[in-house]
Amino acid sequence: MTSWKKYERFVAELCSEDYQSPSVTVMPNAKINGCLSQTTRQVDVLIDSRFGDDRNRRIIVDAKKYNRPLNVKDVESFHGMMIDCSSKAGILVCPNGYSTAAKKRAQDFINLKIVSLEELENIDLELWDDCLSDNCDERAERGLVLWDAPMGIGFTASPVSISSIGKCDVCGEFHIWCWDCGKKFSLSNESAAQCNCEHSWFWLTAIEGDEVSLNDHQQSESVYLLLVTPIDALIADRKPFVHFPYAETV
Rank of each mutant, 00 (worst) to 15 (best):
K65M: 13
N111R: 09
L127V: 10
S222E: 05
S23V: 07
L225Y: 12
D53G: 12
L117W: 04
Y246S: 04
V93W: 07
M27K: 05
C15L: 03
D148G: 13
Y246N: 04
T156K: 12
F78M: 05
E198I: 12
I165W: 00
A63D: 07
I231A: 06
W203Y: 14
I207E: 04
E13I: 09
R142Y: 03
W147L: 00
Q194M: 02
E119I: 09
V160H: 00
Q219C: 04
T229W: 03
V160I: 15
S23E: 14
E208D: 13
S3I: 14
I207S: 00
P28T: 01
T249L: 05
M151G: 09
G52H: 05
A247L: 12
V24H: 06
V24N: 01
L146F: 07
A157M: 12
S99H: 04
R50L: 01
E138S: 15
A157C: 07
S16P: 00
V45M: 05
I83H: 04
F78E: 08
C168N: 06
E17V: 04
W147K: 00
S37W: 02
S213V: 08
A236N: 09
K64D: 01
A30L: 09
G52V: 11
L112S: 09
E17N: 06
C181R: 03
E126D: 14
K113M: 08
I165L: 09
S86K: 10
R9T: 05
L234Q: 06
G34N: 06
L226P: 12
P240L: 10
K88H: 04
R55F: 11
I235H: 01
Y7I: 01
Y98G: 08
D18A: 14
G80F: 02
S161F: 01
I32V: 15
V93E: 06
S87F: 02
N122C: 07
Q194E: 06
Y246I: 03
E208I: 07
F174C: 06
A106R: 03
L214H: 06
S158A: 13
Y246H: 11
W4Q: 10
S188K: 15
R9H: 04
E76D: 10
I207C: 01
L144K: 15
G97K: 05
A247C: 08
V24A: 00
L112D: 04
E173V: 15
K167S: 15
I231Q: 12
E190G: 02
Y224K: 07
L46F: 06
T100E: 11
S3F: 13
A149Q: 08
D130G: 03
N29F: 04
V72I: 13
P69E: 01
W201E: 03
C136P: 00
Q107N: 08
K103C: 10
G209I: 08
D44C: 03
I91D: 09
E248I: 08
L234R: 11
K183M: 10
E248C: 05
W179C: 11
F109V: 08
K113G: 00
C197G: 09
T100G: 14
E13P: 02
D124N: 13
L146V: 02
I47M: 13
S87I: 08
D137L: 15
